[in-house]
């Protein structure tokens, strides 16, 4: 018993704490990056007062939120009101257990990794729905209803996009999916699965309730939607969850479509050996940052969607596109169309 504790439990708890701490740091600086990037897109400078070039801004924001009073509205449902932020942040952190950071740098290398991520992220909607209901406020309730319908709709499109990846790679294990993309930058799945990458990423923006799909918040229509009654640290938890989900989706996109920790110079004679010393972790983080930048870029560029347009995009455009591309991928896989699907498909005899 004691042996098990020292051999398995303690190192794993250490790893979990390390991942969560680094993730929280990344979330803090993502908020700064967001304000800076959107600032420059809109010809402003962004926050530059706290610390050199505004670098301590996230810490100041965090301290401010920590010291604010948490107000519980009268006639709200106290237990659920407190539980909602917890249910929002829980799945956002739990999904990180299976993310591969490098060839052997993964906390839990499980067989059904992709399914696990999909199942855990599908639970993040509960935080929003319960927050909206427990607040006993009409605006919050409208935000919750909008979010529930939107997230369930886009989950289907996202699921289909991931089915395409799983047909192409023949595995649900995230590390195996990365290894299946080995070869060169042209072997990564962004090229054969380009429509699915677009469907996946846009559905991801909708799942995290980010602009232009932020119907759950919609400041101009329903004040702030589901978190209108929250203040202080409870409010901050919703933001932590949203940003952690953004980073997760970006890293998942990098893993599934952009070759994860593989070097982009693979297969190019001179550059490959020149960049061989760079660890895989750097590549995966660079690719993640690329997707994160697109998140911010989209927010700064597009106005908010109308609700019926969101539903139309999800059901009538994304789901059919993903379904057609799954069939195309399956045909390519069966007939060994190269350079991606040249490995022999296992023939099944009943």
């Amino acid at each position: 018993m004691l042996d098990m504790v020292t051999q398995h439990l303690l190192p794993n708890i250490g790893k979990i704490l390390l991942i969560v701490a680094l993730l929280m740091l990344a979330v803090a600086y993502l908020t700064l990056a967001e304000r800076k990037v959107i600032g420059y897109i809109q010809m402003r400078i962004g926050p530059n007062r706290v610390g050199p070039r505004g670098l301590f801004q996230p810490i100041a924001d965090g301290l401010k939120l920590l010291m604010k009073e948490v107000i519980v509205p009268t006639r709200s449902n106290l237990y659920l009101f407190v539980l909602a932020p917890v249910l929002a942040i829980g799945p956002a952190l739990a999904a990180w257990a299976v993310m591969p950071f490098d060839a052997s740098l993964v906390l839990a290398d499980i067989n059904a990794g992709l399914l696990y991520v999909l199942a855990i992220t599908s639970m993040s909607v509960y935080g929003i729905v319960i927050a909206g209901w427990a607040s006993n406020s009409r605006y919050a309730f409208l935000g919750a209803m909008r979010s529930a319908a939107q997230v369930v709709s886009y989950e289907i499109a996202m699921g289909f996009a991931l089915v395409g990846v799983l047909i192409a790679a023949g595995s649900l294990n995230l590390s195996d999916i990365v290894l299946a993309q080995q070869g060169s930058i042209l072997h990564w799945y962004w090229l054969p699965l380009l429509p699915l990458l677009v469907v996946y990423f846009v559905a991801g923006v909708a799942e995290t309730n980010r602009a232009p799909f932020d119907m759950a918040e919609g400041e101009s229509e329903i004040v702030a939607g589901f978190h209108v009654e929250y203040s202080g640290m409870a409010f901050a938890l919703f933001f932590l969850a949203e940003y952690a989900d953004m980073i997760l989706l970006s890293m998942l996109a990098a893993t599934l479509f952009m070759g994860g920790w593989l070097s982009p110079f693979e297969g190019i004679p001179l550059l490959e050996s020149l960049f061989a010393w760079v660890p895989g972790l750097v590549w995966v983080l660079l690719k993640t940052s690329l997707f994160l930048f697109v998140f911010l870029w989209i927010r700064a560029t597009f106005p908010r969607y109308r609700y019926d347009q969101i539903m139309r995009l999800g059901w009538k455009i994304f789901i059919p596109v993903a379904l057609v591309w799954i069939i195309i991928i399956a045909i390519m896989q069966v007939f060994d169309i190269g350079p991606w699907f040249t490995e022999v498909v296992e023939v099944i005899h009943p």
């Binding site: 399914l115 199942a119 909607v125 529930a148 989950e155």
Partner: peptide, 12 residues
């Protein structure tokens, strides 16, 4: 799959 289908979609 139980979590994905029932918890993630049906019960929502």
């Amino acid at each position: 799959t139980l979590v994905l289908v029932y918890v993630g979609a049906v019960l929502v």
